[in-house]
């Protein structure tokens, strides 16, 4: 995408090739992804609250703007105008860096998401590993905030979160291995290209058990209910976010939702055929709209889980991760490898 834009600029303005223009086109492409993403995050929060309200037969936000659509922007403005409070016992630099790290990591992972054929900022050969790496780095924002806050609630929340994220990454890793065996490449574009065709060619059908494990692990990885123990308000007030206010809190909040959207997009790419239309007749709709629709579907499911599943106890969470998902996903890796060989479906 960067290359194409760069070449277009060079030709359109008839200027010489230069490193500066290349740099500018990289920055421009990043803005093209990040700005819509931030707006999408604002609406995702609204969407989340509306779904939650609908399940509980309430109305949800309906005051600011038509249907309450501007509620998130009003909340953002409010947060922006609040005072940033730094606890006197806190480690100031790390305290302020933690939300920035969470937010940045949630954004940079989007660099490898392909919105269409060849429409990714970085078409990395190891795209899936990159997403996995960035989501595993996300734990630092939480640990650092917990430690730097110098508060027991925050520290306990951070400890829980770190243990939880490290545990569920293992099963996510095995889930990815299963899909990659069928694709034969770590490139996210190749994963989508392998699912070319209609809805029946999507990986959701052959890989359904894996999809279930991935979905549940995603909830744990993004600290969503029923696994939102790091911020369990009943026992830890708000976990690692206890001491944060104003923009620092807003960065955590945005980062969290950007991460959820990212995992929804990854789910759409791995299991729902990425940018492909479900039936051939709908091919005239551009691919990125399909990807957005599938991402929205993933987000809707994650949101529904929040609405009707009660929170897990911490030991149950750990048991589910290590004693249920890990053995099952390990078995599935072996089973799918065997099936792929038996049916001669291994990619060359």
């Amino acid at each position: 995408m960067v290359e194409a834009f760069y070449n277009w600029i060079i030709q359109f303005f008839e200027i010489e090739q230069s490193a500066f223009i290349y740099f500018v086109s990289i920055v421009a492409m990043i803005l093209v992804i990040v700005l819509p993403l931030l707006i999408a995050v604002a609406f995702a929060v609204y969407f989340d609250r509306k779904i939650w309200a609908a399940v509980q037969m309430r109305r949800g936000p309906n005051v600011v703007g038509p249907f309450g659509l501007l509620q998130s922007f009003a909340d953002g403005l409010k947060l922006f105008l609040k005072e940033t409070i730094i606890p006197s016992g806190a480690n100031k630099v790390i305290f302020l860096m933690a939300p920035m790290i969470t937010f940045t990591l949630a954004l940079i992972a989007w660099a490898v998401i392909p919105f269409g054929e060849g429409m990714a900022i970085a078409n990395l050969n190891v795209g899936i590993l990159y997403v996995l790496a960035m989501s595993s780095l996300g734990v630092y924002g939480i640990i650092m905030s917990g430690w730097a806050s110098n508060s027991r609630y925050a520290f306990l929340g951070a400890m829980r979160s770190a243990a939880q994220m490290v545990s569920y990454e293992v099963s996510i890793g095995f889930v990815l291995v299963c899909v990659l065996m069928a694709v034969g490449s770590l490139n996210l574009s190749d994963v989508v290209l392998a699912q070319e065709g209609g809805i029946l060619d999507w990986y959701i059908w052959p890989f359904f058990p894996i999809y279930v494990i991935f979905f549940i692990s995603t909830l744990a990885e993004t600290n969503r209910p029923p696994f939102d123990l790091p911020e369990a308000e009943a026992e830890l007030v708000a976990g690692y976010q206890v001491e944060y206010s104003s923009m620092a809190f807003a960065l955590f909040f945005l980062g969290e939702y950007a991460n959820i959207l990212l995992m929804s997009a990854v789910m759409a790419i791995l299991f729902f055929g990425g940018w492909y239309a479900p039936i051939e007749a709908l091919d005239f709709i551009p691919g990125w709209i399909w990807l957005l629709a599938k991402t929205a579907f993933g987000f809707w499911m994650i949101s529904m889980v929040k609405a009707f599943v009660p929170r897990y106890r911490y030991d149950q969470l750990m048991r589910l991760g290590w004693k249920v998902f890990l053995p099952i996903s390990l078995f599935l890796v072996v089973a799918y490898a065997g099936l792929l060989i038996a049916f001669d479906k291994l990619p060359s």
């Binding site: 590993l129 790496a133 595993s136 780095l137 734990v139 490290v166 990454e169």
Partner: peptide, 15 residues
């Protein structure tokens, strides 16, 4: 060596 780079991040930094 992008594969090694990602392993370095996932294994060393992430765990």
């Amino acid at each position: 060596a992008e594969f090694l780079a990602m392993l370095l991040i996932i294994v060393y930094v992430g765990a």
